[in-house]
Design a protein around this nucleic acid. Structure first.
Lengths: 329, 329
DNA sequence: ATGAAAGCGCTAACAT
DNA sequence: ATGTTAGCGCTTTCAT
């Protein structure tokens, strides 16, 4: 493994000149440049990022924190982040926290120890106090889930409005007994989506029935099945269900058909996220589309700006209702 | 941001002693150790990995190359890799190649420039010659897809046997007209799986009908739908389909029911991988289970051993047939 | 246009 | 048990 010294020697120039060639500076005479390039080729030299990074005091790595890689919701976001990162010569370290504070702390150390230059946090369960403290000295962006007034810039959607839109759609097609499969309301987005749900009902003079609101610990398929089981056992069975995640909704779909009922004739279902799989079910799933890819690109751009020392502002992106088989009689 | 010098000064010792404390060496008197620890706390010092990595000539990052993050098959493998990596104080850089050689080369540079310590390649479309050349100087493991006699250690399953098992199951439950949805046979696993398919048929004296073999460019849901469309248009329509990926099979499932046919009564379907979603469809999917998590842990352990300079041997893991709704009348 | 030299933060060999 | 010091590979300031 050649280093910059050997290249300099081979080319008969100083290391400074080699470095200049490496970094594309135009202060090098083209004759010299060619000598250096020849030497580089001859020694098949590759500059070490370890040296460069130490010197520049950067790692050119961005840390992306997600609760679990199993929810496809995050995949599109990650793609967006990755594409921006690559184009700006950054790489991304993808880390699953499993919403485990201990594990999270290990990952936070990555920025403290300069192993990464900044963090995009997508974990709703993140310890906000720790995050705020970390943000004093390091570059941090929140994506999707965020903390109000934390001073940490975020990119997200209007959860309350989106939820309102979903429920209003169900009401419009004739439903009044609408259940909500929500996640734990310790999360901001869960509280916001519940409020949207309630607002849609109340606006139409429909009484909110607390028995119709089921909380789940995670956003997975199994949680959706379990929640739907409870709903099907209700005395006054709902005719529609709004689940705050597609995976939950798909679990609900499955449980409904397992019980010999039909979607949407017996029970209509609406999900949230528009993951790829929401189009693969039978029937296909009506859902709220989030601009996940865009969210990712914006989060990455924000983080990189912040790393450069620029001011960045939070952004709220648009959502959209996608009507498909699960609400189309 | 304090550095090791300032800590040494604060504690009234040399930088060497601070370094010893940092690295848990037992040659430090406990009195001195306490002084150092106090100084570290007081200055809220965090050692810089940039300095350490340069000095140790390592990055403690493993590169994981996957063709696409959209196929959940990779997710479980990644989890396995990640858990082993973390336990050994490594981190993983996850990179999508999109089976694009250009992009791949950018990622290969990561190991050439010491940005990562080694590579786990899972891309079937990887340029084998480049990979072999790279493996001369760097640590590389192949996972799932591999190159025979390349000298690069790999962990995989017996694709031919697995495919044979799947088709034999279909024959056993009474099918003779069995279609194969395969991917491009430029990939080794595709060739192996086709051989297994043929062997199962021929062993039972069933003639291989080339019209029954459909090739797709990718392993996605849409590809499965398109392939199934072709199969449904066949004059002598098959009564069963074996798809070499669950996503393909799920696409097939969808296309079959779109056409008003029933699975498994009209057409039975078998997939491959046992991704989570294969249990969420209606009917659930019969499939070949690959030990994905285990594959990931083994690949990671192999790579880390190789980085340490140890010899490692390739491993072939067990597969299993999981019989579910799509082949259960 | 080019070179000499300092220094980023750390570890380890060697000296005491 | 602890300190001194060289050096990992690079970039950049300052001098020429």
């Amino acid at each position: 493994m050649a280093n910059i010294q050997q290249v300099a020697k081979q080319a008969g120039v100083s290391v400074a000149t080699v470095s200049r060639v490496l970094n594309g500076q135009n202060t090098v005479a083209s004759k010299t440049r060619i000598k250096v390039e020849d030497a580089i080729k001859k020694l098949s030299y590759e500059p070490s990022m370890l040296g460069r990074n130490l010197r520049n005091s950067e790692s050119r790595i961005l840390l992306v924190l997600i609760p679990t890689i199993s929810n496809p919701f995050y995949l599109e976001i990650i793609k967006g982040i990755e594409n921006v990162a690559i184009s700006q010569n950054y790489n991304i370290l993808l880390c699953e926290t499993d919403s485990n504070p201990e594990r999270e702390n290990i990952y936070f150390d990555l920025v403290r120890t300069k192993m990464v230059d900044g963090i995009i946090s997508m974990d709703p369960a993140v310890n906000v106090e720790t995050l705020i403290k970390l943000a004093e000295k390091h570059s941090i962006i929140q994506c999707s889930e965020y903390a109000i007034d934390s001073g940490i810039p975020y990119v997200t959607i209007d959860n309350e409005e989106a939820s309102y839109l979903a429920v209003k759609h169900l009401i419009k097609i004739g439903h009044e007994k609408i259940a909500l499969i929500n996640s734990d309301e310790k999360y901001l987005y869960a509280r916001q989506r519940r409020i949207g749900y309630q607002r849609a009902l109340e606006e139409q003079g429909i009484l909110v029935n607390n028995d119709y609101i089921i909380h789940t610990q995670h956003l997975g398929f199994e949680n959706g099945k379990q929640a739907m089981k409870k709903i099907l056992n209700l005395e006054d069975r709902p005719t529609a269900v709004f689940a705050v995640s597609d995976l939950l909704a798909i679990g609900a779909l499955k449980e409904i058909s397992t019980n010999g009922l039909h979607v949407p004739n017996d029970i209509a279902v609406v999900g949230f996220d528009k993951i790829d799989f929401s189009n693969m079910t039978n029937p296909t799933l009506t859902t709220i589309a989030q601009p996940m890819y865009k969210m990712g690109t914006i989060a990455a751009k924000m983080l990189i700006s912040q790393i450069k020392g620029e001011e960045v502002e939070s952004i709220i992106l648009d959502h959209e209702l996608v009507i498909r088989g699960s609400t189309l009689g």
